[in-house]
Amino acid sequence: MTEMEVWNNKRELGNLSEDERKIFDQLGLNESSRRKFLKGISATSLSVWAATYFPPEVFASAAAALPDNPIKLVNEVKVNLRINESVKSLNLDSRTTLLDALRERLALTGTKKGCDHGQCGACTVLVDGKRKLSCLTLAASCEGKEITTIEGLAENGELHAIQKAFLEHDGFQCGYCTPGQICSSVALLEEAKRGEASYVTDDLREITKDLTLSEEEIRERMSGNICRCGAYNNIVQAFKEVHSSDDEMPTWEFATPEQMENAKSS
């Protein structure tokens, strides 16, 4: 079957592989919206959107292990990476960072490369529950550690509360720093529970758990994730809403007819 025939088959019958089903879960599409989605996607756009949604490697957790890279590597290391609760066995160049292993070997491209030098936070993942930079972590040093990436935060199609809040509060624009921001936020929720301090904490000697973080505290603690689009205020709102369970209201409004009139007349 040609690529196009496979696609048409899916469109008509909704025949999905296990991987594709998982992708739909991640997209939050249930049975009827799946069909609608498949119909809505046009055949001409197949290669773009099919690539977006259906690369077989995207949900590597569904596959036991990817084939080994056939390339002969100098200083090869064998690593078992436990990522999003599934173990991948890889033969890697000793120089391979966790970031490149995720993106280039496991097709887990949700984790982003923004600078490759620990200066932006886009590559933030959770390692044993703590936020760390995958660009300055050698994959070889991750044996036996539990790694969670952006792809592993939603459960059975249900987004993590932080993911939902980012969506609702528009905590992103281009979306490139977003996985890092979200992983960082998820970790920060726990850091606040553990009572960890920051540079802007008033008194380091007052140790309490379950901190309620002020806006300044949130900003300082989220300063390791640069957002060049400048969505910081929305990121703070998204975090706050999950952290303190209070509704965060938009800080935009339309001028009223009265305001407009007054501004004119005076």
């Binding site: 920051s198 540079y199 380091l204």
Partner: peptide, 23 residues
């Protein structure tokens, strides 16, 4: 450290970012 050497904590917390301090 926080109780008896808060100066050390504060200096450390001023550095880099949470991610980097975790590593």
């Amino acid at each position: 450290v926080r109780k008896n050497y808060p100066l050390l904590s504060m200096s450390m917390l001023s550095a880099a970012t949470a991610q980097i301090r975790n590593m």
